[in-house]
Computed example of a mutant assay.
Amino acid sequence: MEQLNQLYEQHVGENVFNPAHYAPVLNQHELSTFFQKWLTTIDLAILGELFFEQLENTLPLCGLKIQCNHSDFCFGLRSNNRYNKRLAVIQHDEQVAMIHYTFTRTLVAREWQILQQLHILFQNPLKNGLEYERIKLAATRDNLTSLGNRSSFDDTMHRLFSHAKRQPSQFALLVIDLNKFKQVNDQYGHSQGDKILVACADTISCCLRDTDFAFRFGGDEFCCLLTDTSIDSCQQITERIQQAFKEQDLLAQHGVSCSIGSAIYQSDDTEHCLFMRADAAMYRNKN
């Protein structure tokens, strides 16, 4: 056992492990029990939650992080202690994800083998979840700016409304319309117009908090949904965006600015009402 533990300690820090050191520990019935649960979903968040709960009941696991290209999914508590281990998920000789495991103590050799066995088994369901996430992301992102599209805006608005109805909270909507964009587009062509739109999207995103959302609503119109926002903080973000437009080189070069209208959620609002208030405020500011 001491020799096995030495072998474990030598290889436990690697992000990929040597199959020669891998020996099946769980039997077919136990593996089938794990696998059957993973087949119930391809949603990455739910899949990760299932994986975390199963490992938590099998190993001294206290935290799990699935790190992929576009986002991270975290479960439980993670820390920077020495019991953090990571294993890669490989597809066609390329790393598609990295799974970080956090334990309450050092694993013994048998536990390390169980982790390797379950990690291998989990890879195919995870790859299916990653492909689903990629397709879902493509369906909800604007191809040009990489912001959320109209469909993503509608879904996020509906989700914030549902949350506010269940647990009273304030959020705000910003409607942003570009000024002088049409003249630039007509004079310099759509290629330059596309660069302007990308610059606007990047500028807006940089002015938001991590908990806020930005969307390209259509054409040269953008929207932002600001969570847990007061009137004062909404005004601060509005001013920050307008100032950032003035300081962005490409936008300043072409004199492109923006008009912004805002509206704070009220308990008797509908989604349509909230949007119309923000849209009307934007047109008042534009005029």
Rank of each mutant, 00 (worst) to 15 (best):
M1G: 07
Q3W: 12
L4T: 04
N5E: 01
Y8N: 15
Q10W: 14
H11K: 10
E14S: 00
P19D: 10
A20K: 14
Y22C: 13
Y22R: 13
A23H: 15
A23I: 13
V25P: 08
N27R: 08
Q28C: 10
E30S: 10
Q36Y: 10
L39D: 10
T40P: 04
L50N: 00
F52R: 04
L55F: 07
L55G: 01
E56F: 01
L61A: 04
C62K: 15
L64S: 03
S71W: 14
R78N: 14
N80R: 06
N84W: 06
N84G: 00
K85L: 11
I90F: 14
Q91C: 08
H92D: 15
A97N: 00
I99L: 06
T104F: 11
T106M: 11
V108L: 10
A109M: 01
R110W: 14
L115S: 02
H119T: 08
N128T: 02
L130R: 03
K136H: 06
A139H: 02
L147S: 05
S151N: 00
D154L: 06
D155H: 12
D155T: 12
R159V: 04
L160Y: 04
F161W: 13
K165W: 09
K165H: 12
Q167R: 13
D177P: 06
L178I: 08
K180R: 15
F181Y: 14
Q183N: 11
N185Y: 09
H190R: 12
A199I: 09
C200Q: 01
A201T: 02
T203D: 00
R216A: 07
E221M: 03
L225T: 05
T227L: 11
Q235W: 02
Q235D: 02
Q236G: 13
T238H: 11
K246C: 01
E247C: 07
Q248F: 03
L250T: 01
Q253S: 09
I260W: 02
G261Q: 07
Q266V: 09
S267Q: 13
D268W: 01
H272P: 05
L274D: 06
L274A: 03
D279L: 04
